[in-house]
């Protein structure tokens, strides 16, 4: 994988949000830098949901936060409604903030334990002094009602609510300033399956009601598929594959996508898990990423070329883009053995 390129981006005028060549670096101690996101491009058309999937360490959450400029990316452009956010400073950037909102994974960590739910949800309105106090109250009550929290309970603190309810409160807080784009960073990963379904349904509803465009980040392809119009698979800071979810599921082109699909537990005892489809090994350290395609160290199809040359993203079927020298043909299956060690490890 390890794909660079922008072949999957749509014409510039169509996109509400367009991210090009995004690079995010963190200090890794001893003066070293680690690239969590290396040259990722993506775009969002108004009203669609882009799913981003990958294992921990693939840079999916960092991508989401870098779009919010929290933290600021090292390089690249984040063009939102024609404005490049990476070039904005201070007040100009702050003015854009209510237009882009975020929902986090941990419902406990994302709500201030010492504030009541009303003031948590109202915060966006208070910051921007939107409306009179009465109007703000009404708006908070409406938002809470929309997410299925009884506004009569708005005086309670977060710890009096369950995990799913806290996530609903987070959603109410995110939509209160009428944002265009919401970035959901693993919003259901910490929830029970039964609650997860409620939140996924709610996000779909809120999207229609508030006219939202969404980025949905998760590690479970089945969850992402349920909410997304387009899915981007990431690995070690790079893009592997971008495709509509049904295409991705029917005929994954990137070996890593196939591995992710195979790893999802199926609630059907007839489908016994097949040990040969289990992706072996671990994600390599981003401090010292493999040369060429970053997935090659775990890929059974890898050759010398994959070590020498980084694959560019290209279209393999209409709407399906993949960064791989040897993409899977439709219907081709792939088996993963132990980690390849016979390849040059540079």
């Amino acid at each position: 994988m390890a794909g660079t390129g922008t072949a999957h981006l749509r014409p510039e005028g169509d996109a509400l949000l367009r991210v090009e060549h995004l690079v995010v670096e963190f200090p890794a101690g001893h003066g070293r830098k680690v690239q969590a996101v290396s040259d990722v491009s993506l775009d969002l058309v108004e009203g669609e949901t882009l799913g981003i999937v990958g294992e921990s360490g693939c840079g999916k959450s960092t991508t989401g936060r870098a779009i919010m400029q929290l933290p600021r990316p090292k390089a690249g452009a984040v063009v939102f409604e024609g404005t490049n956010l990476t070039k904005l400073k201070g007040e100009a950037l702050r003015a854009q903030r209510p237009r882009l909102q975020m929902i986090f994974q941990d419902p406990i960590s994302s709500l201030n334990p010492r504030r009541d739910v009303r003031s948590i949800v109202r915060e966006g309105l208070d910051i921007w002094k939107i409306g009179t106090p009465d109007e703000r109250e009404a708006k908070v009550a409406a938002a809470l009602d929309d997410v299925g929290i009884d506004p009569a309970n708005a005086d309670r603190r977060p710890h009096e609510f369950s995990g799913g309810q806290c996530q609903r409160i987070s959603i109410a807080r995110a939509v209160i300033t009428d944002p265009k784009v919401i970035i959901c960073d693993e919003p259901v990963s910490a929830l029970d399956v039964s609650v997860q379904a409620q939140i996924l349904n709610l996000l779909d509803e809120m999207k229609d009601r508030y006219g939202l465009t969404m980025i949905f980040i998760a590690h479970d392809l089945a969850v992402v598929k349920n909410v997304s119009d387009r899915v981007m698979v990431m690995y070690l800071g790079k893009v592997c594959e971008v495709a509509p979810p049904d295409t991705l599921y029917a005929r994954p082109a990137h070996p890593y996508t196939a591995a992710l699909l195979a790893a999802i537990p199926v609630p059907d005892p007839a489908q016994r898990p097949d040990p040969t489809t289990v992706l072996a090994g671990e994600i390599p350290s981003p401090l010292d990423p493999p040369s060429g395609c970053r997935f090659r160290t775990r890929c059974p199809k890898a050759t010398e070329r994959c070590a020498a040359e980084e694959p560019e993203i290209r279209e393999v079927s209409p709407g399906q883009f993949v960064a791989c020298h040897f993409p899977l043909a439709p219907g081709e299956t792939i088996t993963f053995g132990p980690t390849r060690t016979d390849l040059p490890q540079i």
Binding site: R65, R94, M102, S109, S110, N112, E123
Partner: peptide, 22 residues
């Protein structure tokens, strides 16, 4: 480091407000 602080930043709260209120 908690996410509600990140959320306040994302909503455009200024540092002083975040420090005092969050």
């Amino acid at each position: 480091e908690r996410e509600f602080v990140l959320s306040a930043k994302a909503q455009g709260a200024k540092p002083l407000r975040i420090m005092v209120r969050e």
